[in-house]
Structures are given as C-alpha cells and as structure tokens.
C-alpha cells in the first residue's frame, strides 16, 4: 500500500508540464483514453496508446521502472482472466492483458500528476457527501499508516510473525484491534475539532486553477486518441 504514499508524493512534489495542467483537462484526457481502451479491439491501437502513455509518464518525470513494477499486479489479475479466455480465442487473452495494462497506466498518470485533494474536490461538486468521506479517508490513511508502521516495527522485534501460524494470526488481529481502537479515539477527537471550527458538512479547496494552452493541447490529444480508436473500430 506504499503505492498510495508515493503516488501522493509524485503528484504534489513534481512541477512538470503535465503536473501544471488543470484537473479538468487531465480528467478529460483520462476519460478519452479510458473509453478508447475499453472500446477498441485493435492490438496495434492499444500498443500505440501504451507508447503515448509511457511517453507522458516519462515527460512527467515519473519513475518508469517503479510504475512498470506496479503494473505487474493488475497484469497478474488480467492474466487470470486471460487464462480463462484461452479456450474462446487466441486474440482475446492478449487484448485483456493489454487493456488491463494500458488502463492501469492511464490511471497512474492521472493520480501521479494530480493531487488526490484536487480530484476529490472535483468529485465533491457532484456529491459533497462522497467528497467528504473520500477526503477524510485519504487524510486518515496517512495518519494510520504511520501508526501501523511503527507498531509493526516494534512488534516484529517481539515476534509478530511466529513459526506458529495461529499465533501469527492472533498477533495480527491484536495489532489491527489496537490500531482500530486508537483510530476510533482519533476520529472522535477529529469530530470534536471539526465541530469547534464550525464544520457545516463541506470541505473547501481554495487553490484556483487557470485554464491555458497546455490544457487545450492535453484535451485535443485525448480527443485525438478517442477519434483514432473510432477509426480503428469500436465494439460494445
């Protein structure tokens, strides 16, 4: 789960061309690419899209090797489906793996170049309720991650992973139980501090984004990929 930590770091610390584009243009690009990946049945188109996405990842100064290592995870799950599709067609399994891989790259490109808070703020325009839960979960994730890492480190010294499997499960359960009770305490304190500060069911994002030429270029690139996939052929 360290990916979320690194993704957050990449999206907030880097200042490249793609990072400085608006959330709106990057979301449009992401949706265009995602729909073209989902609708196409062309291996050549998918290979071309993967090349474009890898180039954008490189331009955005993101660690390509690490991202390709992360890609093993969705590719592994795609291969479970690919194995299940072997009997029906020889092309379909390869399409499934390439689709899983390319959509993973598009998701990683979006979240590694756009801070979570900006995406949540954008989503909160559609549902403030969900936006609040997303924002708080994201915030608490880092609070708890630190707590869990410290506890795991100290418990490892005292034999967290024992040779006795049942004892290991008991240790893990006690660890989670401990973290859970601590997290409930933190959440109660957090609620009280929200009330003191006059929380009225909405979080605000004050940073304003300005739409520029680079945003137009990103949107046109996305639309171009979508149009190209239409030329190559769509199937619902």
């Amino acid at each position: 789960m360290s990916e979320i930590f690194l993704i957050d770091y990449f999206s907030t610390s880097k200042k490249t061309f793609y990072h400085s584009a608006t959330t709106f243009s990057k979301l449009i690009f992401f949706l265009c690419v995602l729909f073209s990946i989902l609708l196409t049945q062309s291996l050549i188109f998918l290979s071309l899209t993967i090349t474009i996405l890898l180039a954008l990842i490189k331009i955005s100064d993101l660690p390509l090797t690490k991202i390709l290592k992360w890609a093993l995870y969705p590719t592994f799950f795609a291969s479970i489906f690919a194995i299940s599709q072997l009997s029906s067609s020889s092309l379909l399994p390869l399409l499934s793996i390439l689709k899983g891989f390319s959509s993973f790259l598009s998701v990683i490109l979006l979240f590694s170049t756009t801070p979570y808070t900006k995406i949540f703020y954008f989503l909160s325009k559609f549902s403030g309720f969900l936006g609040n839960v997303l924002f708080l979960t994201y915030r608490f994730f880092f609070v708890l991650l630190n707590d869990v890492e410290n506890r795991i480190r100290s418990l490892k010294v005292r034999g967290l992973y024992s040779a006795n499997k049942l004892q290991t499960l008991k240790n893990i359960s006690n660890l989670i139980g401990h973290v859970f009770l601590n997290s409930i305490e933190i959440s109660e304190k957090f609620y009280n501090s929200l009330m003191i500060r006059g929380f009225k069911g909405k979080f605000y994002h004050l940073e304003k984004e300005s739409f520029g030429l680079k945003d137009l270029a990103i949107i046109f690139l996305g639309l171009g990929i979508l149009a190209l996939s239409g030329v190559v052929g769509w199937t619902l």
Binding site: L136, F140, F141, I152, I172, L175, F180, S183, I184
Partner: peptide
Amino acid sequence: SLPKVSMISALMLISMSI
C-alpha cells in the same frame, strides 16, 4: 459518523497491505 467511517475505510485500505 463521518470521521469514524473514514477511519474504518482507511483501516481497510491499510489492512490490505499486511
């Protein structure tokens, strides 16, 4: 319930990494 739900969601995310 908002902080509690978010905290449990965060705990679910973290537990997946154990």
